[in-house]
Nucleic acid binder design. Structure first.
Lengths: 196, 196
DNA sequence: ATATTAATTCACCAATGAGTGCAACACGAT
DNA sequence: ATCGTGTTGCACTCATTGGTGAATTAATAT
């Protein structure tokens, strides 16, 4: 059910989705939709919360994968992998569609938007490279301000394509994303790689 | 007149702005509005084109200011200034509002959106640091892929705050923007600064 | 003064879409 | 069989909003 509404909200935005359509997509009638799932606002909020929760779990997973068994020797390769996965994650079509939709609807649903910008995938994941490094060994990376470095990491890796995708709705090819991500990691390492 | 529509479109988005409101804001009647400026779509497109043209001129100005009389000695300071000005430019309230509105309206006006993502301030300006350097001396910066480096510059400098602003509509304080920009330039220089 | 042009007023149409009321209906449990 | 719960179908209200028609009024030129 939430899946149905998600599909349509993501595809056509909040204003562009009618309750009739949602009902049809879910194989129900408008009438039953209203008696079971409340009005449009509630439905929308539920769907956003649901999706945000999913995104958060993805972020956690990514972080763990990066941080477990991290050593000096594997740092560069790990960062590379993290960068690519983070970029691909941020630039997944559904994620971009969600952001676009939320931006479009932010005037009407400031709270929902706040909930995602608080734990958006990148903001969560972004804490990975420096945050975890600091908490574990303290000298994997030399960043005076880990949080800022983390943000730099995220936007180095995916910023350009995210911006373009937000504006146009089109996503670049996977190889392009990967190449850009690696280039971003390289720049990141140029500043924050441990000495020696 | 375009100013009136701009004000409202930026504040309430396309769907959230009625022609009545526009007419009222401009001190006209709906009827005269229709007989002089066509329908809502046309008005919107005109207003977008107008704004985009302004943004483009800002980009050019920024580029010239950076590139004129650039030397090795002044490179770092110039990049710093460019970064700060670029970040402040991208994060101007009207610019952010324009982006948000365009993202919200992109389903209905793909062409207008395309026109801005083709010459968006950052995409124009972003070509400045490396593009101009290459065209003038060739070794101010050592970037194999100047365009990619330029994108990294732009998103290092403003990406994080732009993303946040797009989602929430709130802008960070000027000092924060400046500090982040300088940090971004530092990372950029760590990779692309000329040897020695 | 008068003719012409443009702007105002106000009523109106048509379409859309959220949300409701209600009667008919399916169907599982007892 | 029948009772109750939940579902369907459909008509309906109500509010919004883009866009138009036509008569009336203001302004401007000659």
């Amino acid at each position: 059910m939430l899946t149905a509404s998600r599909t349509l909200f993501l595809r056509h935005g909040y204003a562009g989705t009618t309750m009739e359509d949602v009902a049809a997509e879910a194989g129900l009638t408008k009438r039953t939709l209203y008696s079971n799932y409340g009005d449009k606002d509630t439905l929308f909020r539920q769907m956003v919360d649901d999706t945000v929760a999913y995104a958060a779990s993805f972020a956690r997973e990514l972080h763990d994968e990066f941080a477990s068994g991290l050593t000096h020797a594997t740092l560069a390769a790990r960062l590379d992998a993290l960068g690519v996965r983070l970029a691909l994650g941020i630039l997944r079509p559904e994620v971009v569609a969600l952001r676009r939709m939320l931006i479009g609807a932010s005037r009407d649903f400031p709270r929902s938007v706040a909930s995602i910008s608080g734990r958006a995938p990148d903001r969560c994941c972004a804490r990975s490279p420096t945050g975890s490094a600091r908490s574990r060994s303290g000298d994997f990376l030399r960043a005076r301000d880990p949080q800022r470095a983390a943000a730099q990491f995220a936007y180095l890796v995916a910023g350009e394509h995210l911006d373009f995708a937000l504006m146009t709705g089109e996503l670049p090819a996977r190889e392009v994303v990967e190449a850009t991500a690696r280039e971003g990691v390289a720049t990141f390492l140029a500043r924050y790689a441990p000495p020696g």
